[in-house]
């Protein structure tokens, strides 16, 4: 196990490279999720104040 972590003396470089990679992808995924939530909230608010939802289907 220790051998696996030290990676023949290159542990620092390898684990930093893998760590940064997954950090960047995780942040990207989080940003996407937060933005989607914000957009849906804004839309819900917009459509609630603009129209009475029950009338929309009748109009068209």
């Amino acid at each position: 196990m220790n051998e696996f972590l030290t990676m023949g003396g290159y542990g620092f470089y390898i684990w930093t490279a893998y760590g940064v990679s997954f950090l960047v992808l995780a942040v990207d995924a989080l940003v996407n999720r937060l933005q989607q939530r914000k957009t849906l909230q804004n839309l819900a608010q917009f459509h609630q104040t603009q129209h009475n939802p029950t009338n929309i289907l009748d109009e068209h």
Binding site: G9, Y10, A17, Y18
Partner: peptide, 9 residues
């Protein structure tokens, strides 16, 4: 040695 494993990212 093991340093080449960085290739995979």
């Amino acid at each position: 040695g093991d340093a080449f494993r960085i290739i995979y990212v």
